[in-house]
Design a protein around this nucleic acid. Sequence first.
DNA 1: CACTGACAAGAGCATTGCTCTTTTCCGAGC
DNA 2: GCTCGGAAAAGAGCAATGCTCTTGTCAGTG
Lengths: 233, 233
Amino acid sequence: MNASRTARERARAELVSEITASARRQLAVTGAAALSMRAVSRELGMVSSALHRYFPTRDDLLTALIVQSYDALGDAVDAADDAVAGSGPAVRWRAITRAVRAWALANPHEYALIYGSPVPGYAAPADTVPAAGRAVRRFVRMLAEAHAAGALDVGPLPEPGPEAADAARLRAAFEVPDLPDPLLLAALTAWTGVFGHVSFELFGQFENAVDHRDEVFDGTVERLGRLVGLPAA
Amino acid sequence: MNASRTARERARAELVSEITASARRQLAVTGAAALSMRAVSRELGMVSSALHRYFPTRDDLLTALIVQSYDALGDAVDAADDAVAGSGPAVRWRAITRAVRAWALANPHEYALIYGSPVPGYAAPADTVPAAGRAVRRFVRMLAEAHAAGALDVGPLPEPGPEAADAARLRAAFEVPDLPDPLLLAALTAWTGVFGHVSFELFGQFENAVDHRDEVFDGTVERLGRLVGLPAA
DNA sequence: CACTGACAAGAGCATTGCTCTTTTCCGAGC
DNA sequence: GCTCGGAAAAGAGCAATGCTCTTGTCAGTG
């Protein structure tokens, strides 16, 4: 009976992954807003109503794609950082940020899905939270290691005010007990800065304005790295 | 005949502005994706097909809203900078960036429309370009003034590589002939950094992570300002 | 007065997400 | 081996959407 139950479950799981695969394919070419349940069901050769058994609502399908996208980005960042294991923090910072941008350029619609405007009427459920934090977590932990090794050339940083409470929460969430408040907050600035740059590039703000995008990005990364005491790589 | 023609034109212009007003109202509550021609036509008491005479396609309506949004942001930035006229560059920098954030928080859907994920299948036409550059232009020109007055405490900045060509183009576009390449590129980093922060805040990335958002934003602004030689305000 | 051109109205088409009701079918217990 | 239960699929249907086409309407002009 356990076997039979898993048989059903297995078929179901397989179908679920086929659905998300098809949806991801469609997402890659048409974008999230144009993602259509009916199109997915067509590609899978089933009737549209059958799809609602697996994803009761279009938002549920979107949620699945969001989690997968966060994970894909997390994997890319992990791989890039692993590839330069043993290097100094500046090299790792560059590798991590380049991985973010490369992944975004390769998967623009996925990037837009997770870092672009939220779909109206859609509230990201709690399921997405752990995956959402993977990339930044990797960065902050790298930074904490560098700080512990004394590799960060931080000048005199002003002590923060009430935002110290936020810093404390982040310190706990990322499990970086020794990272000082100012550094943690500067890390937030650097991190958001990277995504600001990538979003501008991807969302068309650089059109007819910036051509040497690799170099401009590297420049931004170097400058942002300086905010957390990282030298040029 | 000229009078009659302008009579027609005037009626038309009035209706066009009524349409965009209704659309903006709808945008403010439901977001861009849910903006519906039929809903606009309903609110205006006309039949949906009549609307297509003024905006042939939904994208054309969106374009109008985009331009208006860029202009509203530009106005907000101009007003904020005017309000601190005579102050030092650090104060103006803070005023400008705070204006950006305040406008974004007050008009989240408009912000998402212009700085969020682009609507798929929609390419922003050239009409949007001038309005799109207003805010950043104001910032860069302010920076150029400060640089000319020797108010920027820039350390030794590395000369850029091929991206110098981009810097030259931007220098021409913004009409800041004396702003050096490294400073211009650093300005780009600071500017994108601000929008990265605002986007993260607005698009939900700070949920359950950052509470003291005013202070955290000010901290980011201060740090980003440092990249272009601006002291704390 | 008749006409032309701008406008409005309405019907219609293909599409969407989602909800029903009905049918099919697989697997397990008697 | 057969029968039943529950999971899955199918299909029809509803209320929307953007957009097109055809038909009516009315103001201003020759």
